[in-house]
Amino acid sequence: MEKKKTVVATASLAGCFGCHMSILDIDERILSLIDLVEFHRSPITDIKHFTEYCDIGIIEGSCCNSENVQVLREFRRHCRVLVSLGECAIMGGVPAMRNGIPVRECIEEAYLNGPSVKGHNPEMVLPNDPELPMLLDRVYPCHEIVKVDHFLPGCPPRADLIYDTLAALITGGELHLPYETVKYD
């Protein structure tokens, strides 16, 4: 009987996809990886809904709106191990620069006062289409919404690091983050 492959799901919440690019930077090693791993819900496969329980969930990006929270919670529900990938997922990252600024001010800057919109929105429309998720009062890192099991630092984390981590998670081996990974000077 064929050994069941490890099922991995990934998502990018309020992320720039740089961390996903970093995953792909494992280059040809992906060929050996897919012997052991199968990607389920992920931008890589374009599978959009969970239909089975996954072993590893990898989350890039922080939670800035209600849809992010919903996706993150689904991931937590469907994945045995959840990994925060990259600084946005770990501590909020670049999107969190809006924390501390009132939400209303952010929305008005984006749709009324910003240099590229000023004067172009005479009816002062603030979008409220039912399809649009609502912004949260601040940007939350993933572990403030659901329990996260592991954190991979970096912006983005190096491909080698991601590969080694996956390898350790799949085989159950140990992983020590090298010093240079967490210190950038």
Binding site: S66, V69, P102, V103, R104, I107, E108, L126, P127, N128, M134, L135, L136, D137, R138, Y140, H143, E144, I145, V146, K147
Partner: peptide, 18 residues
Amino acid sequence: SSFDMLAAVRASCDAVGR
């Protein structure tokens, strides 16, 4: 987590009228 969705979206809902 002590995250409260309703409280978190209140400000933006108020701003756009949702």
